[in-house]
Computed example of a mutant assay.
Amino acid sequence: MQDLAKKFENLTIQSDFIFKKVMSRKRICIHLLEELLQIKIADINYIEAEKSLEPDYTRRGIRLDIIVEDDKNTHYNLEMQVKNNKNPHTKAFVLPKRSRYYQALLD
Rank of each mutant, 00 (worst) to 15 (best):
I44V: 07
I44F: 08
N45L: 06
N45G: 10
N45Y: 00
N45T: 06
Y46S: 07
Y46H: 07
Y46N: 01
Y46C: 10
I47H: 04
I47K: 11
I47T: 10
E48L: 01
E48H: 15
E48W: 12
E48S: 15
E48P: 07
E48D: 07
E48R: 13
A49N: 04
A49F: 11
A49R: 14
A49Y: 14
E50A: 03
E50R: 01
K51P: 13
K51W: 10
K51V: 07
K51F: 11
K51G: 11
S52A: 11
S52N: 15
L53N: 08
L53E: 07
L53M: 11
E54A: 13
E54Q: 14
E54H: 13
E54I: 15
P55W: 10
P55M: 09
D56T: 03
D56H: 13
D56L: 01
D56E: 02
D56C: 09
Y57T: 01
Y57D: 03
Y57F: 09
Y57I: 06
T58S: 13
R59G: 00
R59E: 08
R59C: 04
R60P: 02
R60I: 07
R60L: 09
G61Q: 12
G61R: 11
I62Y: 02
I62Q: 02
I62N: 03
R63P: 06
R63K: 11
R63Y: 02
R63I: 13
R63W: 05
R63F: 04
R63V: 00
L64Q: 02
L64H: 06
D65K: 01
D65F: 09
D65W: 00
D65C: 02
I66C: 01
I66F: 12
I66S: 00
I66A: 08
I67R: 09
I67F: 00
I67G: 09
I67W: 06
I67N: 06
V68C: 13
V68A: 06
V68P: 03
E69A: 04
E69C: 08
E69I: 05
E69H: 00
E69T: 01
D70I: 02
D70N: 14
D70C: 03
D70T: 01
D70R: 06
D71K: 09
D71H: 11
D71F: 03
K72I: 07
K72W: 00
K72G: 05
K72Q: 09
K72H: 07
K72E: 10
N73F: 10
N73E: 14
N73A: 12
N73D: 12
T74D: 15
T74E: 15
T74C: 08
T74I: 14
T74V: 15
T74S: 14
H75S: 13
H75Q: 14
Y76G: 01
Y76W: 11
Y76S: 01
Y76K: 04
Y76L: 09
